[in-house]
Amino acid sequence: MYEIRPKLPDDVTVNGHMLYLHGGCYVVEFAPALYWPFLADLSVILRRTLTVPIYPLAPEHTYREVYTFLLGVYRRILADHDPKSVVLMGDSAGGGLALGLCHASRDAGLPQPSDAVLLSPWLHAGLPDPAVPAVAKVDPVLNLDFLHRAATCYAGGDPLDHPLISPATGPLSGLPTITVMTGTHDMLNPDARAFHRRAQTEGVDIHWYEVDRGIHGWVGFSPVGRDAEDALQYIHNVLAKPEPPPRPS
């Protein structure tokens, strides 16, 4: 477990806390060299302290152990922070976990965080959208066969459309404000789009930020310059509330 505190001027106060869940297809360990620059910037820009848990990974563990662990982490955070000041954020598999943890917390009777911010999220482990194979051909980061194998290990024999394995399938009532950041050259994008359509149909409060030709992980780990800067500013504006933010032009 890592705890991060932003280095801010003496006259600037911390806005709240964030639970950040790393990506890696549920099977890859947290990579400090990859994440530290991004998380440091994130902490300063959003003026939030961060908890970065090192959660159990497949194939040694399944989603069951992952959520047991994360619910424990979330309970400890709630013991020290008002839930209205807490944000869940994650990238890739961590983005799926962030939304899944909202489901698990609601079902456990715990208060929701103020927001769930999902970066290039893996929202359906089965990747069922018919557009996925075509996008996979232009995705320079992810491998479709590897994702299928990882999802099977993570599910531990349970159906891939289980709401804690594929949180896009879970009920959308009682969830916090959701923000999805995605790109059209990410093979997870078609299922994210399907989730967005469903959320809009059901009247769920959701912010959608899509970059044309954006690849998987573009918000934090791709050399896209202005796109990433604008995205972080957009997240800052979303979390500032109460006005819905305009997307940077």
Score class of each variant (00 low, 15 high):
Tyr2Val: 12
Arg5Leu: 14
Lys7Ala: 15
His22Pro: 05
Gly24Lys: 07
Tyr26Ser: 02
Tyr26Thr: 07
Tyr26Glu: 06
Val27Glu: 11
Glu29Val: 11
Phe30His: 10
Ala33Ser: 12
Ala33Met: 07
Tyr35Arg: 12
Tyr35Cys: 02
Trp36Ser: 07
Phe38Leu: 12
Ile45His: 07
Leu46Gly: 01
Arg47Pro: 04
Leu50Thr: 01
Leu50Glu: 02
Pro53Met: 08
Ile54Gly: 00
Pro59Leu: 09
Pro59Gln: 05
Pro59Arg: 00
Tyr67Ser: 01
Thr68Tyr: 00
Leu71His: 05
Leu71Lys: 06
Tyr74Phe: 12
Arg75Cys: 06
Ile77Asp: 00
Leu78Gln: 06
Asp80Gln: 15
Val87Phe: 07
Leu88Glu: 03
Gly90Val: 04
Asp91Met: 09
Gly96Phe: 03
Leu97Pro: 02
Leu99His: 05
Leu99Glu: 02
His103Phe: 13
Ala104Phe: 03
Ser105Pro: 08
Ser105Asp: 08
Ser105Gly: 14
Ala108Glu: 15
Ala116Glu: 01
Leu119Cys: 08
Ser120Val: 08
Pro121Trp: 03
Leu123Asn: 02
His124Trp: 05
Ala125Phe: 04
Ala125Thr: 07
Leu127His: 02
Leu127Thr: 04
Leu127Pro: 02
Pro130Asp: 10
Val135Glu: 05
Val135Met: 06
Pro140Ala: 03
Pro140Phe: 07
Pro140Cys: 10
Leu144Gly: 02
Phe146Gly: 00
Leu147His: 03
Leu147Gly: 03
His148Ser: 07
Ala150Tyr: 03
Thr152Ile: 09
Thr152Lys: 09
Cys153Gln: 11
Pro159His: 08
His162Ser: 05
Pro163Asp: 06
Ile165Thr: 03
Thr169Gln: 09
Gly170Trp: 01
Ser173Ile: 03
Leu175Ile: 06
Met181Pro: 01
Thr182Trp: 01
Thr184Gln: 11
Asp186Met: 08
His196Trp: 13
His196Thr: 10
Arg197Tyr: 10
Ala199Thr: 14
Thr201Pro: 00
Gly203Thr: 13
Asp205Lys: 15
Ile206Pro: 02
His207Tyr: 15
Glu210Cys: 15
His216Arg: 11
His216Leu: 11
Phe221Asp: 04
Ser222Tyr: 09
Asp227Ser: 12
Asp227Tyr: 11
Glu229Tyr: 13
Leu232Thr: 12
Asn237His: 13
Val238Glu: 06
Ala240Leu: 15
Lys241Asn: 13
Arg247Ile: 13
Pro248Met: 11
Pro248Tyr: 09
